[in-house]
Design a protein around this nucleic acid. Structure first.
Lengths: 212, 212
DNA sequence: ATTTTGATTGAACAATCATTCAATGAATGC
DNA sequence: GCATTCATTGAATGATTGTTCAATCAAAAT
């Protein structure tokens, strides 16, 4: 492999190994030896490519934030033509296979659990959250305008929308038997339909899970 | 102090010290020496009252689950007379000073971040979640009956309600300047009012925060 | 072909920390 | 009072692990 291509290859290789190890062993049991082994490299390698274990973890979160950010932005951009379709795209993205799988959600919650004590983590999460909510707020603003529902507050709705998504991920983690991707999608759609029945279709199968 | 009273006193003392240390240092930096110091006892003490560090952490989560469980059940029981008032009580409880403060929310997320790899944590969180959602489902069922909204699914609404609450806690952690207790309450009320305008009052100040 | 540069290894080091335990001291039972 | 029980201490231990670095190996440059 060419020398100048190696550096980035190794960085990504180690970051992906880190994600694997977090998913398998958790944050508090993660060791650099495990990361190196998952990357099929030797133990000293991490400190060659990253200043420290903390730096590796920060780079890993940065990687995840970047990937997720590109993902949902692309989803919104591709959706349409109605504004409601863009909000649906955000919802569907959040509960699509690519991100709403057990491994990815596990790792997100591992990072969120540690964010409080790592300013660099905090900054990354804030950026992600703010951007997501800002776009959602703008979309809700347009839906509100279209439905002449001026009494509704788009920022509050966006916050609730975003928060419900994160909370449902937790539910998927803790109660996987009761909350899967499809159920989570239905929950989100139920709220959107309830708030703006003219913009968001009722889920035909909505009432079918009320056996609980 | 009487000998038989000491055991329980020390247990609680150590558990509360553990909560303090988690809040201050985080899960991954928590050491038994710190816990002992916070409890103003000596280093060996934890292994006298708890089988291991893991056992201490499990007992700490159990303590928090117990306290929170008694708290929201008491709130629901005391609220009324309308069904809607009981749901409002759940919401107000979740964003009252006692639980929706920075320290408590921090520690909850620290535990959730680790839950995935600790079956005992998982079981405790599942029980809490299930009970909360079961009661919320029952309350939504009654609200649906009162409003002749048979097309609504109470279980889905309860899941969304509960998830939004957890997600807003995360927002309070990550973005404390944009999301405080009062904002979170408004978010929750906005959704309830939007879904069942006849049962949940519109927040007079709802539209005042849309400057963002 | 030879030299130089830089990636990679893995053993060694130093620090941290959960756990153990012999010693201490205070409360309880007699 | 005396003996006994048991809570508590804090130093010692052993295991784990992040980090360093001298040695090795392969690619690039001359």
């Amino acid at each position: 492999m060419a020398r100048d291509a190696i550096k980035e290859t190794r960085r990504v290789q180690l970051i992906e190994a880190t994600i694997d190890v977090i998913a398998r062993a958790g944050f508090s049991d993660l060791t650099l030896a495990q990361v190196a082994e998952a990357a099929r490299l030797s133990t000293g390698i991490v400190n060659f490519y990253f200043k420290s274990k903390d730096a590796l973890l920060a780079a890993t979160l940065e990687h995840m934030v970047g990937e997720y950010g590109r993902y949902w932005r692309a989803n919104v951009a591709a959706a349409g033509p109605r504004v409601a379709d863009k909000l649906i795209a955000m919802l569907e993205g959040d509960f699509g296979r690519l991100v709403a799988n057990r491994k990815t959600v596990t790792v997100w919650y591992a990072f969120w659990g540690e964010t409080r004590w790592r300013p660099d983590f905090m900054t990354l999460c804030q950026g992600l959250n703010s951007a997501f909510q800002a776009v959602a707020t703008d979309l809700f603003r347009q839906v509100i305008a279209e439905t002449n529902a001026a009494e509704r507050d788009p920022a509050l709705l966006a916050k609730g929308f975003s928060a419900m998504s994160d909370g449902l991920w937790l539910d998927m983690l803790i109660n996987p038997k009761e909350t899967d991707r499809e159920t989570a999608r239905r929950v989100m759609r139920a709220f959107l339909h309830g708030l703006f029945p003219s913009q968001f279709a009722a889920d035909a199968s909505e009432a079918s899970s009320s056996a609980a």
